[in-house]
């Protein structure tokens, strides 16, 4: 492997991380409020609003069942408006975000539901408002579980960034596909793939350790 190859791989790593982190971050910016609303408005929740809960749940399910590759094409016009282009690594961020957000919403929902109802009751007895219960009880108490969820979401999104090649984007996935599949350079494909696996492992390991360390329930 020459130095040109090394720098290409390095660029691939950076681009993969770039797409993954942006998409994950944005998916959480959208997914957390959705997950919170789902939990808060459900029947028996801290502020039940059944119609809102049902409608939101319906749309989340619809979006979750659209295959990513279809979403990628369906969203092209919107992608152009959002990022100014339909090609390149940046162009895959909006569809990745859109397909991950509903998934994140469900993950957040299930994490928040794990919070002990007794603790919420105690907060209410102290005169906490709905908003205070959300940001001082639900989210902090669910933090370890939310972090575990984030590790899963991030590694899943990382896998999907391989699709960036479909719209002329870069990253390790695209390199593996281009060199391995189209040019029959198996060595490049193998190196890129190994790098992807290693990155997933590192993220998974570090992140899970962080999640565990942040949990004050275990000791």
């Amino acid at each position: 492997m020459d130095s040109q190859m090394v720098s290409m791989m390095w660029e691939g790593v950076l681009e993969t991380l770039y797409m993954t982190l942006w998409s994950t971050g944005l998916a959480y910016v959208i997914g957390i409020p959705l997950g919170v609303i789902l939990v808060v408005t459900e029947e028996g929740g801290i502020r039940p609003i059944k119609p809102l809960h049902d409608i939101l749940g319906f749309f989340v399910n619809i979006f979750r069942s659209i295959p990513f590759i279809i979403l990628l094409f369906l969203m092209l016009p919107l992608t152009l408006i959002l990022v100014g282009t339909q090609i390149g690594s940046i162009a895959i961020i909006p569809p990745l975000t859109a397909s991950a957000a509903p998934y994140v919403a469900r993950m957040v929902e299930s994490s928040l539901k794990e919070v002990d109802a007794g603790v919420i009751e105690a907060a209410k007895s102290m005169g906490a408002s709905t908003w205070q219960i959300i940001y001082k009880v639900l989210l902090p108490e669910a933090k370890p579980s939310l972090l575990v969820g984030a590790a899963i979401v991030m590694t899943t999104i990382l896998g999907y960034t391989a699709m960036a090649g479909m719209c002329g984007g870069g990253g390790l996935g695209a390199i593996a596909a281009n060199y391995g599949y189209y040019r029959w350079q198996a060595d490049v494909m193998i190196v890129a793939t190994i790098l992807l696996v290693v990155i997933v492992q590192i993220i998974q390991e570090l992140w899970m350790r962080g999640a565990k360390a942040s949990d004050k329930r275990i000791r």
Binding site: D116, G118, V119, E121, A122, S125, M126, V137, P140, E141, K143, P144, D215, K216, R217
Partner: peptide, 15 residues
Amino acid sequence: MGMIFQQFNLLAQRN
């Protein structure tokens, strides 16, 4: 009106 419970209901992530 303060309230205490059988299961204590402390916030597990706060000291």
